[in-house]
Simulated scan of single mutants.
Amino acid sequence: MNQRYATIVVNALLAVIAVLSLGPLLWMLSVSFMHPGEASHFPAPLLPSTPTLDNYRQLFDRAGMGRHFINSLAIASGVMVMSLLMNTLAGYAFAKLRSRGRDRVFRSLLAALVIPAQVAMMPLFLLLKQMGLVNTYLGAMVPGLAGIFGIYLVRQYARSIPDELLEAARIDGAGEWRIFWQIALPVLKPILVTLAIFGFLGAWNDFMWPLIVLGDQAQQTLPVALASLSREHVQDNELMMAGSVVTILPVLVLFLMLQRYYIQGLLVGSVKG
């Protein structure tokens, strides 16, 4: 009986936390369908009196958010794909390929985690300027192409692959690339999905670096364009909420599509790491 009451209490607490977490998001979605000024009433309405899509039409037709949406999607997708490739190769090499000084290099990388990313922005900007990558999509992708945290996750997960399995493949004549693609990569699939979500989220939500490296307004990403729009329409809560929904929707869809693999990667990684 005590266990039954404990289960009820835990579920009730989880339900309260879920309501508190989802409440602001649901209200944001509701406000995005309201008429201008309707959300400013007191008390604020929970639902629109007559739902309208005018805020979304204004957002894409007049504010040009469609172009910025495509910019963010292209940059975030490029970062996700290229960071997966680089982090996976580096993490697997640190975990399973023996080389002189491997552990010292890895410890040096871990030590660099304590350095704030903002410290490296100015040197990185000057370097990209000399390379002609300022005001380019590739320049906006550079900071996310390889991350120490991603390398660390892949390394810790790859260490769970039995060395005997890899040695048996080498004895059978398999090369290192074949071992990586046919043996290691399928095992790493859960953590790769987790890294894909992290990479996409990081690039999609990034504000500071695109603001610095993308001076052309036509190349700005969605967060930067939305911040600029908020200064022009500071009192238009409904339009701002519509912009927030457009910003959140892609990452929400991506997470819902991959949540099974994402949770599997976190749980298995915690056991095997």
Rank of each mutant, 00 (worst) to 15 (best):
L222C: 14
L84Q: 05
V31W: 01
A120S: 14
E167S: 15
L53Y: 07
S99I: 04
Q182G: 06
K96D: 01
V271Y: 04
A111N: 01
P223F: 10
P43H: 02
H68G: 04
M141P: 11
V142W: 04
E167I: 07
Y262R: 06
A196Y: 06
I115R: 01
L113H: 03
V245T: 11
R100C: 03
T221F: 02
F33N: 00
L185H: 11
L145T: 15
G37N: 11
Y56R: 00
S32L: 13
W27V: 12
L249H: 01
A18C: 08
V271S: 07
R260F: 00
V224R: 03
F149L: 15
G144A: 07
G199E: 13
Y261L: 02
V10N: 09
L126M: 11
T194F: 01
V16I: 15
N87Q: 14
E232G: 13
G78T: 13
V193H: 03
R170Y: 08
G215T: 14
Q264Y: 04
L127F: 06
S108E: 01
A146P: 02
V193Y: 05
V268Q: 09
A168W: 13
G101Q: 10
F69M: 14
Q3A: 09
M34W: 03
G150H: 14
L110F: 00
T50L: 05
T136R: 04
V31R: 00
R62A: 15
Q235W: 08
L239Y: 01
Q235F: 09
M241I: 10
T7N: 11
A111P: 00
P36C: 05
R178V: 15
T247P: 02
R57A: 08
S77W: 01
V224F: 04
P24H: 08
W209D: 01
V268S: 14
V154T: 05
S72L: 08
L20Q: 11
L145E: 07
R4I: 13
P186T: 08
E238K: 04
R159W: 00
V81F: 12
M257R: 02
F180R: 03
E38W: 06
P45F: 13
I148A: 10
L133P: 09
A95H: 01
I151N: 07
A227M: 14
S160G: 12
A158N: 05
W27M: 08
M208A: 07
P36H: 02
A227G: 10
P190S: 09
L145H: 05
A174E: 12
A63K: 06
A169L: 15
